[in-house]
Design a binder for these strands. Structure first.
Lengths: 343, 343
DNA sequence: TATATTTGCTTAAACGTTTAAGCAAATATA
DNA sequence: TATATTTGCTTAAACGTTTAAGCAAATATA
């Protein structure tokens, strides 16, 4: 029983024989409208099943109350938790979220940005795709004067708000943890250097190794796409070395999983022969055997902070956007794959 | 360098000293506009960085080209794959997706529906929350005359399009697979009976057990929320029975994982003492040891079909919505947890 | 009682786009 | 050459809402 015409403010106005303006004001609880009229309007609005037309009000007010979100993918615990927490904060303030995923593709990311701008979002909160190297599309957002907030995968050059963890010191914490377990040759399977967070993890690894006088060899530091498959490949590469490492720190959990499989297949004992540490604290790290030590990135905190940062920007639109970093401490969750004391 | 005013059609019109209508038509490649004018408009549009205002055009055309999607959660491989494939099909036709998640909460689901209706989506594609028992909010969508397409978790009573797998026959396939492995006492940890898909799996289990003359006992059939924790609890419950089952078919992979943990903790050999089958083919089922046999639900196919169904509905708006089911065959992926032949 | 203020609305315009209707100039047809 | 058709635009109105400006009636103040 689909009714052709939707109920509009005009319908309510006609029914009550008042002006549309009065109805609009009544619905927004304007102090200059009598409570008698307000009640009547609310009653009829309900009876006629009135639903405000977002397009019209957004067009008129020049504000859509929509926030665009771009993530590399949603089927990761980290990103879906971030989004859930952003939603919680933003919903309370009357904003809704439009989620898009880039699937790590630069092209898709650009298309997403166009879609979001086209939909007239009031702001964009994004984490960059692995592929992204050119920033022109993000500059476009800034040029439009729309708040842009980056999280996790950000970029200093954009000079916008950023929320993330301290990747550099995270690496230091991991290296020191492995040293405390008695490891003396620590390898690092890192992400792509052009992505800032992975570059920071690599720098943190190098500096920590140097600081503690451990061997820093080119062979022990490899760059990876951090997929499970590449984790396998890079682990095999490390096992083929004349002098094998006795610990491997891997900048992503999926790659760590692939590496662990290779170690198991080669009957290498984890953590006693080779200790393993991942990054991201994906749920499966605690599910498999041995469970994988990993870095918790405080996804819920990041989501809430990103949302709050957007709200602040929106409340103070006059201030020009500047590089404003909010850096959280990551937390190492020690599990069997690197815990030699437990064995 | 944020520019206050966005470029509008009017700006282009003023610049070229033609009417706004001509600009609009030029941008839409209207045959009655000269190619000379079209070129000039396109050139200036680009120069002035013109971005069409979706709100205005949607308001005028009475069509937003947005499709709302509601899923219980996005951090599941099934749902995120469904969404990715829907997006692919819909983007090609000029539609964009607004994703929302209900977190399995009925209240959140209702709020999501309101948001989507408010945003004036042209259609809604949804999979229901576990909690959902009342259908009034979904009736609201139908009443508005907006196409509603359900997938995976649907409901016959709504009389709308539905895309999903054949849960009933899936159960039969699983039971028969376990019989072929020599299992004689097959238990089922099912989902909530009030959810149609879980009810169908339960019915399929019961009928298959009956058909093959296996013991059908109340103790062997338990209802569960299908979380990992509840999977543990229900597995413990089954182990406490006087006559333990020699196979357990669990209607969700997370619960299957919990159950597997309990079996390992009790030094019960899988699959030889107790064989295990899950449902959903979540990626981790192949990652853990032993890997878990599970049902693949063809998420990409479901996503594409749901999108195509929406497009059909939109092209033929005259036809009243009726119950129109598209049922796909699920596929059993046999892994170590139920493969006795391999040991 | 005369004036000032407040209350409760209305009028009219605007947000940026699309589209039906129409008109003048250019071109085709008889 | 006269009429019909086509081309390439313009004009004006509309989508549904919000809001500045304003006005009459009611109430407060002097």
């Amino acid at each position: 029983m689909a009714n052709k015409k939707r109920t509009t403010i005009k319908d309510i106005a006609d029914f009550l024989e008042i002006s549309a303006a009065a109805v609009s004001k009544a619905l927004h609880d304007d102090p200059r409208i009598s409570s008698k009229t307000k009640e009547a309007v609310r009653k009829i609005a309900k009876e006629l099943n009135y639903q405000p037309n977002h397009l019209a009000s957004a067009l008129r007010r020049g504000k859509s109350n929509l926030v665009g979100v771009i993530v590399p993918r949603t089927n990761s615990n980290f990103f879906s938790s971030v989004i859930q927490n952003m939603e919680e904060v933003l919903n309370k303030e009357g904003y809704n979220i439009i989620m898009t995923q880039s699937n790590e593709s630069f092209e898709k990311e650009c298309a997403n940005i166009d879609t979001l701008l086209f939909t007239q979002v009031d702001g964009i909160i994004a984490s960059m795709a692995n592929e992204t190297v050119s920033l022109e599309y993000y500059e476009k957002i800034k040029f439009k004067g729309i708040p842009l907030i980056l999280f996790d995968r950000g970029e200093n050059d954009l000079n916008v708000d950023y929320i993330g963890i301290d990747d550099y010191s995270s690496s230091q914490i991991i290296v020191e943890h492995l040293m405390n377990q008695g490891c003396k040759r620590i390898a690092h399977i890192g992400g792509y250097k052009h992505t800032r967070i992975f570059n920071n993890r690599i720098r943190g690894y190098i500096d920590a190794i140097k600081k503690h006088g451990l061997p820093l060899e080119g062979n022990l530091l490899v760059e990876s796409s951090l997929t499970k498959e590449d984790g396998r490949a890079k682990m095999n590469q490390l096992l083929a070395l004349d002098k094998r490492p006795d610990a491997v720190y891997i900048a992503g959990d999926y790659a760590a999983l692939g590496a662990l499989q290779v170690l198991k297949e080669n009957q290498i004992e984890v953590p006693n022969d080779i200790a393993l540490v991942g990054f991201g604290n994906e749920p499966f790290t605690s599910l498999i055997s041995p469970s994988i030590t990993s870095m918790e990135q405080h996804s819920s905190e990041i989501g809430k902070l990103a949302a709050k940062t957007f709200l602040e920007r929106t409340k103070n639109p006059m201030t020009t956007q500047t590089l404003n970093k909010k850096i959280l401490e990551a937390q190492l969750i020690v599990r069997d794959s690197s815990n030699r004391n437990m064995n």
